[in-house]
């Protein structure tokens, strides 16, 4: 319990630093928000008045404090670009899309990577192992826009199995939502699959050399059972760590996939907002992504205790 409280404190510290970094970076972004709002060709006094109204003339630290204190209450300000909606609302609309894509993509990658890696590791150096790793490097070297376009051509346009360029919210139609999300999730999965398989395979090969694997074999345990019950868990540290990092990263960076499939996710939202100089939206979105990142990785840290009992605190 104390450990979790300690972690929560750490988390807050990290978030504080991140928020400062985000604020500073966005402040350094080129472009004048007043121009972004009013458009060009107005008298300088009008711009100046608007800047004053937005609080842009206040000292930096004061502005940071204002932003942070309202962010803490969930108010991330208003978007500068019409329709000038609430930043929090915009993020709440885009975040579920991105999280769903990332989670589905990772799950698909995981479901494929685990058996592939186990097969590879069990027959390391064999023909199948070499084929799998060649295949993995092939998927790794195909850019995601190309893979995405191919999948759209084949499965959406050609075979008509999947709709394209639409998004159905999960609240409206769960089945339709999955149907729409599957193809983009596969594109994301392909990007992660090679790395997952490779990392797990290599860790498994190391684990399979352990004495306890030999001891399990000497008990007459079948090879597949040894792989699943003896080798997989001690081998999954790197994979779990990598998945945590991937999840945090994917939430904000599936821009290409979002554009390809016309999905209203975080990535495309941030790119558009940056282009328009909509700094409150960028600030808010980046802060939320940082929050997701930090929380996910804290969860990953806690999961090590499950993966390896030795890392748990000893209790009398």
């Amino acid at each position: 319990m104390r450990r979790i409280a300690w972690r929560a404190g750490e988390l807050l510290g990290v978030l504080f630093i991140v928020s400062f970094g985000v604020f500073m970076l966005v402040t350094l972004m080129p472009g004048d928000p007043a121009v972004a709002i009013l458009g060009e060709g107005h008298p300088p006094a009008e711009y100046e008045a608007l800047r004053h109204e937005l609080g842009l003339n206040d000292p930096l630290l004061i502005r940071y404090w204002d932003w942070l204190s309202s962010a803490a209450t969930g108010d991330l300000g208003r978007s500068l670009v019409p329709p000038q909606s609430d930043v929090s609302d915009r993020i709440l609309g885009a975040l579920p899309v991105s999280v769903q894509l990332a989670v589905m993509g990772l799950l698909i990658a995981l479901v494929l990577a685990v058996p592939l890696a186990m097969w590879s590791a069990a027959h390391a150096g064999g023909a199948v192992d070499r084929m799998i790793s060649a295949g993995m490097f092939a998927t790794l070297s195909v850019p995601s826009f190309l893979a995405g376009l191919l999948l759209i051509m084949i499965f959406a346009n050609g075979l008509g199995w999947f709709p394209r360029a639409q998004w159905v919210r999960i609240g409206e139609d769960p089945v339709g939502n999955l149907h729409h999300a599957l193809l983009p999730a596969i594109v994301i999965a392909l990007m992660e699959l090679a790395l997952f398989t490779r990392i797990l395979r290599n860790d498994l090969i190391v684990t399979l050399k352990e004495d306890y694997i030999l001891a399990a074999r000497a008990k007459g345990m079948p090879p597949w059972r040894i792989l699943v019950t003896d080798a997989l868990r001690p081998s999954s540290f790197s994979l779990v760590t990598l998945m945590g990092i991937s999840l945090g990263r994917l939430v904000g960076s599936t821009v290409i996939v979002e554009y390809l499939f016309a999905l209203p996710g975080m990535g495309s939202m941030i790119v558009t907002a940056s282009g328009q100089g909509d700094f409150p939206l960028v600030q808010g979105a980046v802060l939320v992504i940082a929050l997701v990142y930090v929380v996910v990785n804290a969860g990953i840290d806690l999961s090590y205790g499950y993966l390896d009992p030795r890392t748990r605190r000893v209790h009398a």
Binding site: D211, Y212, G220, P222, P234
Partner: peptide, 27 residues
């Protein structure tokens, strides 16, 4: 292989050198 595994346990068993490494840390 399969027939051999059926003997490992009921017919022949092994005790290994290092008990620090011959038990699975996560089990």
């Amino acid at each position: 292989q399969k027939a051999r595994r059926r003997l490992w346990g009921p017919e022949v068993a092994m005790v290994f050198q290092d008990p620090m490494t011959s038990l699975n840390p996560v089990k």
